[in-house]
Every structure is written in structure tokens, then in C-alpha cells.
Nucleic acid binder design. Structure first.
Lengths: 142, 142
DNA sequence: GTCGGTGCAAATTATTTGCACAAGT
DNA sequence: ACTTGTGCAAATAATTTGCACCGAC
């Protein structure tokens, strides 16, 4: 399925959840569908302004909060102050952050997650969610 | 070694690194040595004020930054806005955060770290540091 | 005595909110 | 129509910084 269709799907799902699909929300959903990276609120605001300059930063923040509550996006607090977002769907994964460029690479390891569960259980806990971030730099071949 | 002695050791090490051991810094180092938990700047400020009310919040922040640069403490950005600190030393470990109480439990898994390295390597990266946080709640026995 | 450190208040940065008006259903 | 959403500007919250004085070495 292409990105435009995916964006429409999200709209439908939100509409069903009783969320009004306003112009700013359409624009933001489209941006989130099209992006490959993990933009922060200001970045989303900038991209949104190119499509519709009347959108405000407040609306971006309010929409991100709404989408997070509805489970449509995930919020990350990587190093560096601002929160960064990515659309949900596409399965759970963790992140490897390039400390030189800020690039984010997604990965997933069932083995690590199994070990996490084991550890939590042995400490008398049940994991609700977790955060695994690897910070590193490109290995130069020798 | 007891906590007071440990605190003195930190003082010596910092002094050798060319850091002046002022009254506020002594107080903050002592607090960090004595604490079992992971306090934020405001909490450290409050505890410091009980020992010496003339200490300012700015100094707490400045000292935390200094100690972090010197490698004497680690800064964590657990959920909930403010940064939290813990003294370094005592070996690397990760954290399990109780989402009901905010309590932090430390743990370490060589197996997970080995897997992390493996994953990073396969992606062409070298890990500089990582962050693994498990958020969960106490398991009730059945 | 010198230079780095401190307290205080003001500045920054990221995010949130009150309000009057606009727009989705 | 009714209610929710929006833009704007002002409010918060966490942290940082400029400046004149103070204290560690």
C-alpha cells in the first residue's frame, strides 16, 4: 500500500475513534506517513508550513499528544532535548542512534526481549514497555 | 569503605583533576555518596539546603554538569521531565523503573550486552553507550 | 592575590494553555 | 447548530547564563 492510502487509512481509523479530521490533522498525518525519519515537533511544524502556512506550532503539539493517546504514533526522548515522533504500526522495534549525525536505525531482537522478560520476572516485575537505545558511530573498515 | 570515606575519595580525585572543592561541591558530593536512589536536581537542591541553606539551584545544576563531564556521575532521562542522577563507579548497569512508584531497580545482563554488540556490528556500527530501561509493575502472585 | 565558583535574577528552550473565533460533522 | 479544534500570545517547567562579589588554592 502506498503512503497516501496509508494516510487515508489512519484518517478513517481516527474518525471511527471520534476524532475530527481537520485540515491541520490531515497535513500532519500525511507528513508522518511520508517521512522515513523521526522528526521532532519543530521539524513537523516546518514541513507542515510548507503545505499550509496557517498551521501553528501549538496545533502540532496538540495533535502529537492526541495521536499518541490514540496509539497512532510513538514518542521518543532520544538525547538532545526535544521529543521525536514516528508513526506506530509496522511492529515494535528499538533504535540505534548515530551520535555523529543523529540518524536513527530501527532494529528488533526477539532474543533480547526474551532476556528482558526473564530479568524482570526474576526481580518480581512485569514489563509494561521498554526502551532500548544504542548510541554509536559507524565502524570504519580496516 | 563507608560513605564518608567514599565521598572524600571523590574529592581527592576531582582535586587531582584540577577541580576546586568548594563548600557546595562538598555538600553535593556527600549527598550523592549517601543516597540510594536516583534524585533529580531539585531533590538534590532540597537535600543540600538542609545541610547548607545558602546553596543555590544554579550551583546544583552547574555541579551536576561538571561531575558528569568528569565522569563522576551519570545522568538519566527517565520518563517524567526532569533529569535524574546517580554516582558513577560500581560498574555499569541498566534500570527497571516501577511505573507505579517511580522506584528504580538496577540490574545487569552480560548476555543482553553481547547481543547489543552483535546487532550494532551487523548494522555497521560500534556502540559508544546504550540505554536500556524496563518500565513495569510489581507482579502480583496468584 | 588570582582566577574560578557562587548566588541571584533574568534569559532560553521545549511544551502547554486560556481565550475568542473558525470549522468539522 | 453544536461542539471540538485552531491560532495567537501568554504561561509553565526545566535548565542555563550574565554579572558582581566571594572564597579556594
Amino acid at each position: 500500500m502506498n503512503q497516501a492510502a496509508q494516510s487515508k487509512d489512519y484518517e478513517e481509523e481516527l474518525r471511527r475513534a471520534g476524532v475530527r479530521i481537520t485540515r491541520p490533522r490531515q497535513v500532519i498525518l500525511r507528513i508522518l506517513s511520508e517521512t522515513e525519519d523521526h522528526p521532532d515537533a519543530m521539524e513537523i511544524f516546518n514541513r507542515a508550513c510548507e503545505i499550509d502556512p496557517s498551521i501553528s506550532l501549538s496545533t502540532v503539539y496538540r495533535t502529537m499528544k492526541l495521536l499518541e493517546e490514540k496509539g497512532a504514533i510513538h514518542r521518543h526522548a532520544f538525547e538532545g532535548g526535544r521529543a521525536r515522533f514516528e508513526q506506530a504500526g509496522g511492529g515494535h522495534h528499538d533504535h540505534l542512534i548515530d551520535i555523529d549525525t543523529g540518524d536513527v536505525i530501527e532494529f528488533h531482537s526477539g532474543k533480547i526481549e526474551a532476556l528482558q522478560d526473564e530479568i524482570a520476572r526474576s526481580l518480581g516485575y512485569e514489563i509494561v514497555y521498554h526502551k532500548l537505545e544504542l548510541y554509536g558511530r559507524k565502524r570504519r573498515r580496516r
